[in-house]
Nucleic acid binder design. Sequence first.
RNA 1: GGCUCCGUGGCCAAGUGGCUAAGGCAACGGAUUGCAAAUCCGUCAUCGUCGGUUCGACUCCGACCGGAGCCUCCA
Length: 521
Amino acid sequence: MPLRVYNTLSRQKEDFQTVEPGKVSMYLCGPTVYKPAHIGHMVGPVIFDTIKRYLSYSGYKVTWVVNITDVDDKLINRANEKGMTVEALAKQMTQDYFDNLATMAVDGIDHFPYATQHIKEMQDIIATLIEKGFAYPLDGDVYFNCTKDEDYGKLSGRSLEQMLAGTRAETHGGKRHPADFALWKGSKPGEPAWESPWGMGRPGWHIECSAMAKKILGDSIDIHGGGLDLMFPHHENELAQSESCTGKPFARYWMHNGLMQASGAAGKVGGGHDKLGDKAADLTAAKEAQEANKLAGSKGAASVKELFAKHDPETIRFFLLATHYRSPIDFSDEGITNTGKALDGFYRLFETYERISGQSFYTLKIAPTRASSAALTGTPAEYFQALNDLRQRYLESMDDDFNTGGAVGVLFELRKTLNSFITDHKLETTPTDKSLLPALTAGMTLLKELSSILGVFREAKQKAASADDGLLDGLMQLVIQIRADARKNKNFAVADLIRNKLNELKITLEDRTDQTLWRRG
RNA sequence: GGCUCCGUGGCCAAGUGGCUAAGGCAACGGAUUGCAAAUCCGUCAUCGUCGGUUCGACUCCGACCGGAGCCUCCA
């Protein structure tokens, strides 16, 4: 079954075919670096990181570009507020973004071009557009001429007439059509500005992506991604500029991820709110409700860093991938906590495997591509058959428009299969029989291979290496020893007291046949 | 007003024109355990409402109800 991808352009799933066989060029709209990232900013990177991993696993050579917008109105305003230069603020926030990506295990981005370093490329495109009649200068600005572009609106599915009817924005006096947008903006005193044939100024919002995608990936790229909110006007305009400039299709597949909704964290507003009415007052109230309900606009939205303090980044990543990328994700503490509990079962299994095999799950060698994936054959035959079926279902899910939700489900089933195998064959209680160990390792390796595509379970959790932890472990061994003596003497009252008190301290004990294990939580 | 999208068990969430409608969390019953924990086994849905198309729809179409996004330089 071939890989199929949902293309916003056609509103349906299409067979995946790249411009160049075996290669994929991928562009994701990156952040405007003006304030610390919130969790919503991580959705796109995590999803496209996973998409890149899967494409690589499928044998493609993938080049992935994410731009950094380091000049923009919001950036200028905030820098002024904070009494910083635009450069200093941009640098600081870019570092914040990089830190967050690393924490979320997003490490597949090949290029991070900066808008301010591609002014020349943007001006070249603008000049070409003017030359071809797709753009016109006006009082130091340059505007794209939408009416000149015959298929303008094809991505978001709207016509210029519709936009004319719906527009409420003030029209710039001289614009030929209200939908015409700025390619170049004349600068006011004190703003960052570059020389240009049209006077001192700075680039419009959309032009940077056109310029950087073209420079690094070429005139036609395979995948262009971004949040659903960017479809219009940003991507529509980007597409119009690029195709008018080059005369070639800009992107084969436009992929838009659903947006994150805040529930609980930022306070759920709405419910019972009327639809947008005609009256200005209703409109304002509804808009405020919407704003309050949106992560991006919400003052209450926690920064990613705050979130990391409360939840394991791996749990957050898993949480994001448990829902299909095109669906909105309802973000809530309960939801992530739930995911955390679900993941605990995997960590238990990893520990169990290590006890049985003496080898860490995390050191298992996995195949880099599906073509090189190990053949799952051997005895017991039914067990290997089950592994094969699960792998097949996993790949089918991912081939179907990167259905990570379905793939996650398979991972859970694989976990159950492995636990059953261990239980059924008493692998943990009869450690002398090693004959089934290779079969178990084959299954665990499959689990590692499939989960690494999602970017999870790749490395052991680094334990906080504070001096306290060494002390804690020493104390715990002592407590466990004392309790073991009590149990040996059938003094269960003492043994249970110890265990209950530890529970209150969020420490769980597990009595096994040969030893007692402890863990936090 | 225009343009998109969504509505699956207590909660989260895959999926399909006809096969037992994945999986997770929670709950309940059992195995195991001194009792627990962990693990295993089992139980737990007719897919927003109403119509239509069809031999047959949860899956296609329509209406309605409910929710979300965009149209206003948010990923």
